[in-house]
């Protein structure tokens, strides 16, 4: 019989991992659902963000969290530029998958060229901070990931729902020509949205750098499960990937705590298949 501590700690572990799935899925969901671009390069960008955090912190001595001040605006500009390129050549959603896969390979090669294929680990004071609640431990980097994921998801959701800018974005995503007829500048809003999505990848990069050892090839290990979180959560829905991510993370963690860890990867994809079968028309 597993102990209460084992179950509780595994539950926490699943929530934190799920928050990272949600954070990685946030930008992907927005670009897929609202811009009709399946941006595989989002994962590569997140890792580039993680490596930049590592570099700025380990070599230049920046506080890891402070690196966001540089990374977020740079990634915003990169995201907008990428969207401009994709829009300029009228790339279809399916072709965007291919183009951004190519971009992923380029970014991976760039990372490997600069930092080599060797593993990199960011050693920061944050890594040693953990809070004890009863018999359970809450590590600061994971808690930060949860806070960032929840804050950004809620802000984006509220922004899209309650602000004029957000409503215009939703209108443009729904029917661009009609939205344009009402004075919505669809091009500018698309650039803004893709910039935001890339900036979120930069934020996810910070969380990756604080919690994981980095290697360029690890870009691909996140693709499957984050795609599952995005699809289960609903395309273009800012809160959906976070909730779905936490459901997947908790399911995986509890599976690992109660049965063999090898069963854990089956959970996310089984959930995906069930959701696809149950609500295919809504995805």
């Amino acid at each position: 019989m597993p102990s209460f501590t084992l179950l509780g700690q595994s539950l926490l572990s699943g929530i934190f991992l799920g928050a990272l799935y949600g954070l990685l899925g946030l930008g992907l969901s927005l670009s897929w659902g609202m811009l009709r671009q399946i941006n595989l390069a989002h994962f590569a960008l997140a890792f580039l963000g993680a490596y930049l955090t590592y570099q700025l912190s380990s070599v230049a001595g920046w506080d890891p969290i402070a690196t966001l001040a540089l990374i977020v605006p740079c990634f915003f500009a990169f995201g907008a530029l990428t969207h401009w390129f994709l829009a300029r050549f009228s790339i279809t959603p399916f072709n965007s998958l291919l183009v951004t896969f190519g971009l992923t390979v380029i970014i991976e090669s760039l990372i490997q060229w600069i930092w080599t294929a060797d593993h990199r680990r960011l050693e920061s004071a944050y890594g040693a901070i953990r809070y004890k609640i009863g018999a359970m431990y809450v590590p600061f980097p994971e808690l930060l990931t949860l806070v960032l994921a929840a804050t950004l998801s809620i802000l984006v959701w509220a922004g899209l729902r309650y602000t004029d800018l957000g409503k215009a974005m939703r209108a443009a995503a729904e029917d661009a020509p009609i939205a344009a007829a009402f004075g919505v500048n669809e091009r500018m809003l698309s650039l803004l949205l893709s910039g935001l999505a890339a900036a979120f990848a930069g934020v996810a990069g910070l969380c990756l750098a604080l919690s994981f050892t980095l290697a360029p090839s690890q870009i691909y290990t996140w693709v499957g499960v984050v795609f599952a979180a995005v699809m289960i959560g609903g395309l273009g829905n800012p809160i959906g990937p976070l909730i779905a991510g936490i459901v997947i993370g908790v399911s995986e963690s509890l599976t690992m705590a109660l049965t063999a860890p090898t069963w854990a990867p089956l959970v996310s994809f089984s959930l995906l298949i069930i959701v696809l079968l149950a609500r295919a028309e809504k995805i």
Binding site: L6, G14, T221, A257, P261
Partner: peptide, 20 residues
């Protein structure tokens, strides 16, 4: 005795079980 698939990302539950 626990086994995981190569490429596993979450070692939290495994660590918990070893501790337990």
């Amino acid at each position: 005795f626990l086994e995981w698939e190569f490429g596993n990302k979450d070692y939290g539950p495994i660590a918990n079980r070893v501790k337990d």
